[in-house]
Nucleic acid binder design. Structure first.
Length: 538
DNA sequence: GGCCTCCGTGATATTCGTAT
DNA sequence: ATACGAATATCACGGAGGCC
């Protein structure tokens, strides 16, 4: 059993999970199966346990999360944790929808929430075992919204999912969420507090973010003392001043937010300062935000480094370690950090041999992170994980191939890649021509970080379409959504672009093709129909 | 006891693609 | 060229266990 972790890698918590009552240890048949569930504490069980322990725990959610990661399993066993399973993956069950999986889990005595319901079009109403008719879904949501307090455990909302797996696949994922699931969140609890001060923070990009420091207040089991104010416009919208009484909530039960001002103070409306408190450089305004434009600003350097170690998942090296290294002058920037010997810290209090060994191990382990992660970790402005993935998908396997494209192609080249627009294209050229970035990349390579996309990471079906640049227009019977055609082109070694140019080699034209077809014809570009395309790929 | 890291999650503005 | 919906980039918080 593993914890969710960052979505890819979690902690091994097998021994602890075994202490949870009600989870079957054996299945009735041998089957390759991965089950997902939520571990929690009942409200009542938490009350009883916490009273016994002298009320040291703030709320059941955090206590349960902490408990399951404990090292001493006998301690975990003493906590009346429960689990409800809600999903499973198996190649052996040949299930094409979640309902079949749900039935399998229930039959094998996995604890399931009795609140799970299935809804389906053309279903008979009120039948006992069949899914309820679709139109009853909204009714059921309403019903549960009213029953929130009746649940024995804390819930913050509901999730509605598409059951059919082929449909899920078609809907796919954004960078953060599946498109086949929706969350209904209950209104967050609120409490009143007062703004004691407003400070500003400088991010790694120089972005200025005002932050409200409020009189600590209890909201839904945690103490809230800080809340982001995003930017000056947001402050203006709230009409917020230091000293105001305010209503504070936890959005999604996690992130504190100032909802509104309930009582004004004498102070004037808060104004973001004109210059950076750290480096005295005047802020510049870009859209709704202000920025510290100084790349050597100590705040920016620090945040950049923190972003680097966190993105590369360097265990046992976090914000505070980075701050100590910078503040005590051990390092002055990311480049220094890459050369730093953690052994130097043995004279510092709080850094024993054990800690130093852990930091070294964390640094070494991060060298196994993918090239994509390494590039992400550099935090090049405008070049996030998605833009990097697009570049890698388009055959840019290493830094050198990107540099070659910058030198050999026209300045509009990157813009022709689907998913990369004007701004990102300019940023790519700017960053990968920047001597400072290039020397960092060299250093990373020397240190043994992954600096190439491993060929196996690319799903490749053939090279039939190599050295071609495709534009896709119109709609297709075989490719819905249209991105599927683009995917297929890439998997066969081709590149894709969003608009027709002189570089385009093929136009895949479906039904109702418009101006792109006309333009392609005028440029004499090869026009391929859906049928011809399928024949080409065999 | 204090510091550090890990863990879970939302909001906002900007950017991109596409329809008009 | 412009408008609009969708997606991305960036920023943010508190509690708990473990190491020093």
């Amino acid at each position: 059993a593993v914890s969710r972790g960052n979505g890819l890698v979690g902690n091994d918590i097998t021994a602890n999970v075994k202490t949870i009552k009600g989870l079957p240890e054996k299945l009735s048949s041998s089957v390759d199966l991965a089950v997902r569930g939520e571990i929690f504490l009942d409200k009542k069980d938490f009350e009883v346990y916490n009273t016994k322990m002298g009320n040291i725990y703030a709320n059941p959610r955090n206590f349960a999360a902490g408990t399951i990661r404990r090292i001493k399993t006998e301690e975990v066993a003493a906590v009346p944790l429960k689990i409800l399973c809600y999903d499973a993956y198996s190649s052996d069950l040949s299930a094409d929808n979640a309902r079949k999986i749900h039935d399998f889990l229930a039959l094998n005595h996995f604890p399931m929430s009795p609140a799970i319901r299935f809804f389906q079009e053309n279903s008979a109403p009120n039948s006992l075992f069949a899914p309820a008719p679709f139109w009853e879904l909204s009714q059921y949501v309403e019903e549960l919204l009213n029953k929130r307090q009746d649940f024995p455990y804390e819930i913050d909302g509901l999730v509605i999912k598409v059951s059919e797996y082929p449909l899920r696949e078609e809907l796919g994922y954004t960078a953060r969420h599946p498109r086949w699931a929706l969350a209904f969140k209950f209104e967050s609890p609120q409490n009143e507090s007062q703004v004691e001060d407003i400070t500003i923070q400088i991010g790694r990009t120089g972005k200025v973010t005002p932050l409200a420091l409020i009189t600590p207040v209890q909201i839904a089991g945690s103490t809230v003392s800080r809340a982001t104010l995003h930017n000056q416009d947001y402050i203006n919208g709230l009409e917020l001043s230091i000293g105001d009484k305010v209503l504070v909530s936890k959005r999604g039960d996690i992130i504190p937010a100032i909802e509104k001002v309930t009582e004004k103070s004498e102070h004037p409306l808060f104004q973001t300062p004109a210059a950076c408190p750290a480096c005295k450089t005047s802020f510049v305004t870009k859209g709704a935000h202000q920025f510290c434009p100084n790349p050597d600003c100590p705040e920016r350097i620090r945040e950049k480094l923190v972003y680097f170690v966190q993105t590369l998942d360097m265990e046992n090296i976090g914000r505070s370690t980075v701050e100590l290294l910078l503040n005590k002058g051990y390092i002055h920037n990311l480049s220094d950090f890459l050369d730093f010997d953690f052994g130097t810290l043995e004279t510092e209090t709080g850094f024993g041999p054990k800690k130093i060994a852990l930091m070294r191990a964390g640094f070494e382990k991060s060298k196994k992170e993918s090239f994509k992660t390494v590039l992400s970790a550099l935090g090049l402005e405008e070049i996030g994980p998605k833009a990097i993935e697009i570049l890698l998908d388009h055959g840019f396997n290493d830094v050198q191939s990107i540099q070659r494209a910058i030198q050999n192609e026209s300045s509009d080249f990157f813009k022709t890649i689907h998913g990369i627009g004007e701004t990102t294209a300019l940023a790519i050229i700017r960053h990968f021509s920047d001597p400072e970035v290039l020397s960092l990349l060299d250093k990373l390579q020397l240190q043994g970080f992954q600096m190439r996309l491993e060929p196996s990471q690319n799903i490749s079906l053939s090279t039939k379409l190599s050295d071609t640049l495709w534009v896709v227009t119109g709609s297709f019977a075989s490719f819905q959504p249209r991105e599927r055609a683009l995917e297929l082109i890439k998997q066969h070694g081709g590149r894709t672009a969003s608009s027709v140019s002189k570089n385009t080699t093929h136009l895949l034209a479906g039904e109702n093709a418009g101006s792109k077809l006309t333009k392609a014809q005028s440029l004499g570009i090869k026009i391929i129909s859906e049928k011809e395309f399928l024949e080409m790929l065999g």
